[in-house]
Each structure stands twice: as structure tokens, then as C-alpha cells.
Design a protein around this nucleic acid. Structure first.
Lengths: 147, 147
DNA sequence: ATCAGTGCAAACGATTTGCACCTCG
DNA sequence: CGAGGTGCAAATCGTTTGCACTGAT
């Protein structure tokens, strides 16, 4: 008797050449729960694949992905590293600690019930990004102690 | 007869050493209507003062200002340059075009009437930043033409 | 006077690019 | 097979740092 076991197959969006490297990066971003920097991606794919990916390739892939709208490119308040995340339907917002750079995800998007389009006239909004910044519990406590 | 003409004097916040360079940068940011990058600041002060400011000095000044809470440090969606703006009471939000990097100021802060504190538990919010991103009228039009 | 602030040049880290080779479609 | 993608190394850009000197308090 035969059992056909079908693994969950990741679908690669059409319209670009899906090389080994691009697939790998795409998979990685798909599994990632947090946005990743180019170097993080580089290290991650290197770990599983004997470092056969050039860092410059990662950057080029990210540029391509961004142009195709597959990923979003972002930076965080108080930290200038560029990070990329897969452009899933949903989106996340964070509270960012200016001291330790910790990011606390906001459960609900405050914009769920607001109309933004009015504000911007002929601007076509494809997304938005909200960051609260300030200081987390731990850093506040440390600050108090250390003066 | 004497006339005493008093120019509007800019007040420099206390607590730091106000060198010639720091004053100049502070004045510049005070007059600026837009956030400025270190290089923009460098060029601007250079123009009026025979370039006697090192770029590294600008960076060090901006770091100091930031630590003292005099300026806010930011980056824009779709553009990785770090910019600084004087930490005036108010704040601005923008719609950012991913194509031409134009920024359209939003007149009203959508958060005026929303409570954000609940969301974040023990996080002390000192500010927030909102960016809408997408495509401006002109870039949409160009896109259509060029295919 | 003293110590923080500055200029300069060199170091650095992140990102980009030129070129020859490789690979997907 | 051919256009486009990749690896490598060198170049570039923004930012930081070491050190000797200068200047604000």
C-alpha cells in the first residue's frame, strides 16, 4: 500500500526567476517571525548551506524582492539597521525602547477604524507604519537606580 | 538719542557647553522647516562659515543633542539616510512616496483622540511616529505612461 | 586651569558595483 | 542557448574613533 505524503509547499510568486538562492531567502523570510537584516539572512542561509551565498547576493535579492513588492524594507527608531520582512497581508506595529532597542508588538492596529485616505489627497496608500517610542519597564528601573 | 534694537535672541537650553559650533547647528535646526541629515547640516554651516566644521563634529553634536533630548533622530521609509529635527513640542507625520521619496505632511495627527497607553503595559511612551507609504500622484501617472 | 569639544585622518560597517562565470527558463 | 543571476573582491557611502590641540566655563 502506498501513502502519498505531501509536504506544505511554499508557493513562489510568479514573474521572477526563482533561483536556488532566491527560494532559500524567500523560505527563510516566510518562516521568520521578525523582520531580518541582510546580514542576519546571510548568516541564516549560510548555516544551512555551507556559506555558498554571497552577502552581495542577499542585498541584490532583497532589492529585487522589494521592487516586486514581495518584501517591505524598514528601519527602527533608535536603531539604524535596515530590515526586511515578507509583505504578508497583515502588518505589525511596535513600541520601541530608545534605550535597549527592545520592540514590543502592539496587538491591535490603532488604525483599524480610521479613515486615512482623506488626509492625503491624491496619494495612494499602500501601507503604513506606526512606532511608539519611549522607555520600557526595565530601562526605566535601571535609569532610576543608576541616576 | 539712542535706539536699542534687540534682535530675537534664541535661547540655548541649559546643561551643556554651548560652543560656537553647537550654537550654529542649533540655530540652523531651529530655522529648518524639514529634518536634516548630518551632511546637509555640514554643508549648510560650511556655506556661511568657510567650512570650519568637521563632519565628525556634526555627528558628535547630533549625538549629544539627541542624548539631551534636544533633537529627534529618524529615518524615512524608502530612504535610509538618518535625519535630525529639533524636538519642538509638536510633531509631524508624513505620507512618503516609495518612488520619488517625496514627503507629504499630514495636517492632523490621527492619534489626537486615541488612547495608546493601554496597549503597551509598562512602556512609557515619549513620542510616536507614523508614516503612510505608497505612491504620489505624479509617480502614479508616470508609472502608467512608462508601463 | 581644566576638561570637554574640536579638526583631521584613518578606521569601520553596511551596502553597492565591476567583472567573469554559472544557471534558470 | 541566452539573458539574467551569482560569487568574489574592490569601491563607496555614511558614520565613528584616536589623537593632539583648542576653547568654554
Amino acid at each position: 500500500m502506498w501513502f502519498f505524503v505531501m509536504a506544505e509547499e511554499l508557493q513562489y510568486p510568479q514573474g521572477i526567476k526563482w533561483t536556488k538562492q532566491r527560494k532559500k531567502v524567500y523560505e527563510l523570510l516566510n518562516e521568520a517571525t521578525e523582520p531580518m537584516s541582510a546580514v542576519q539572512i546571510y548568516n541564516s542561509v549560510g548555516q544551512t548551506d555551507k556559506g555558498s551565498y554571497a552577502l552581495s547576493t542577499i542585498y541584490r535579492i532583497m532589492t529585487t524582492f522589494e521592487e516586486r513588492g514581495l518584501v517591505n524594507k524598514t528601519t527602527w527608531m533608535g536603531d539604524d539597521t535596515v530590515v526586511y520582512e515578507l509583505n504578508r497581508g497583515g502588518h505589525k506595529h511596535y513600541a520601541v525602547c530608545l534605550e535597549c532597542h527592545k520592540r514590543i508588538p502592539l496587538e491591535h492596529c490603532p488604525f483599524a477604524h480610521i479613515h486615512l485616505e482623506k488626509e492625503t489627497g491624491d496619494f495612494t496608500i499602500t501601507g503604513h507604519k506606526l512606532e511608539l517610542y519611549g522607555y520600557c519597564k526595565e530601562c526605566k528601573a535601571r535609569e532610576k537606580k543608576e541616576g
